[in-house]
Simulated scan of single mutants.
Amino acid sequence: MENVSEALLKELIESVLEGRNILHKKSAEINPVSLEKKGEPSDVQNMEMPADGENRQEIDCKKDDAPAITDYDVREQYLVENPVNREAFADLKKNAPCRLGIGKAGARCKTRPMLQFQAAHSAAQDAVFSDVDPKVLEELGLFQVQTQCRNKDVFLTRPDLGRRLNEEGLRLIKERCRQNPQVQIYVSDGLSSAAVNANVREVLPSMEQGLQGYGIETGTPFFVRYGRVGAMDQIAEITGARVTCVLIGERPGLLTAESMSAYIVYNGYVGIPESRRTVVSNIHSRGTVPAEAGAHIAEVIKKILETEKSGTQLAL
C-alpha cells in the first residue's frame, strides 16, 4: 500500500464528516406526523425530539402526552386506510374486542396494534406465573390449602397433580369445613391469578348473598393454591356437599388476562365425566360483570339443586 500524505488523509476525513452532517440535518427536518395520510391516526403523537446534546432519558414524558398502550380500547380502534364502509365495520367491531380493522404498515402491523399485542402477551404470562394477592384472601376470610404441586413449574407441567390435594390440605378441609352442606364454594388460582385478584371480591359475596336469599345453606369457603378444575371432585367427596362450585382463573388470552369462571357439579366424585360440569365463563369487567355473575351463579345453583342435575343433563 502506497504512503498517503497527512494532508490528503485530513482532506478525506473532513469530506466524510461533512457528508454525515448533511444527512443528519436532512433527517432532522422530516416531520414524523407528515408521513401519515391526511385523516388517518398517527402512531407518533405529541412527541418532542431532544435538542442537540440533550439526554433523551431526561425528557419528562407526561401521561397526557404519551398514554399507556393498554389504555386504548381495541373496540374503538379502526386503522384501515381508505375503507369501503368505515361506519358499518366500526359499529360491528364495538360488539367484540377482536383485533380486526387494525390496518397495515407495508407488510406488518402498525406500531400501536403491535405494541398492544405485545402488552397483552406479557399480561397473559404475568397472570400465569404470579400468585394470588394474600390481601384478597384475608379480606374474604379464606384459609388456604394446596394441591400436590410443590410449585408453579410442577403445576404447569403436571396437571394431574393439580387435581389432587396434598395431605395437609385434606386435613385442613376436614377440620375447618362444615360437613354435608348443600353447597360448597371455594376459590382457586387456576391459570390466572390476575383473574382472582380482579373479580373474586365481587363475585363471592354476590353469590353468598344470592344463595342466602334463596334459603340455601353453604359450607365454609377456602382457597386452593395450584388448583385445576378437577380438584373439585375430591373436595366434593371430602365435604359431602350436594353441589360443589369453584371460582377459578381461566387460561389467559390476548384479549384479557383477567377472565374467571365458575364450574359447578352436582354430587361430584373423583372420576365424574366432564360433561357433568356446568360452567359460567368470561367473568371480567368487559365480559360478564363480576357482581352480576355472582347473582347468576346463585340462580344456576338453585336450579341444579331443584333438578338434581348439572352439566349437559341440566336444561337452562
Score class of each variant (00 low, 15 high):
6 E>Y: 13
7 A>F: 10
9 L>D: 07
13 I>G: 05
16 V>P: 00
16 V>S: 01
27 S>N: 00
30 I>R: 06
41 P>K: 15
45 Q>S: 10
45 Q>F: 10
49 M>Y: 13
52 D>Y: 10
54 E>W: 02
61 C>R: 15
64 D>T: 05
64 D>I: 08
68 A>Y: 07
78 Y>D: 07
79 L>R: 07
87 E>Q: 06
92 L>N: 03
92 L>H: 04
92 L>Q: 04
97 P>L: 12
101 G>R: 02
103 G>C: 09
106 G>F: 08
112 R>H: 05
114 M>Q: 12
114 M>Y: 13
114 M>V: 14
115 L>V: 00
117 F>M: 15
133 D>W: 11
149 C>M: 10
152 K>G: 04
154 V>S: 08
156 L>V: 04
158 R>V: 12
159 P>I: 15
170 L>R: 14
180 N>T: 14
183 V>G: 05
193 S>M: 11
194 A>Y: 02
208 E>D: 06
215 G>C: 15
222 F>D: 06
224 V>K: 03
225 R>S: 00
229 V>L: 12
230 G>M: 09
233 D>C: 08
234 Q>E: 15
236 A>W: 05
244 T>R: 03
244 T>P: 02
254 L>Q: 08
255 L>P: 03
269 Y>E: 05
284 H>I: 05
285 S>I: 13
289 V>E: 05
289 V>C: 00
296 H>G: 04
299 E>S: 14
309 K>N: 14
309 K>M: 15
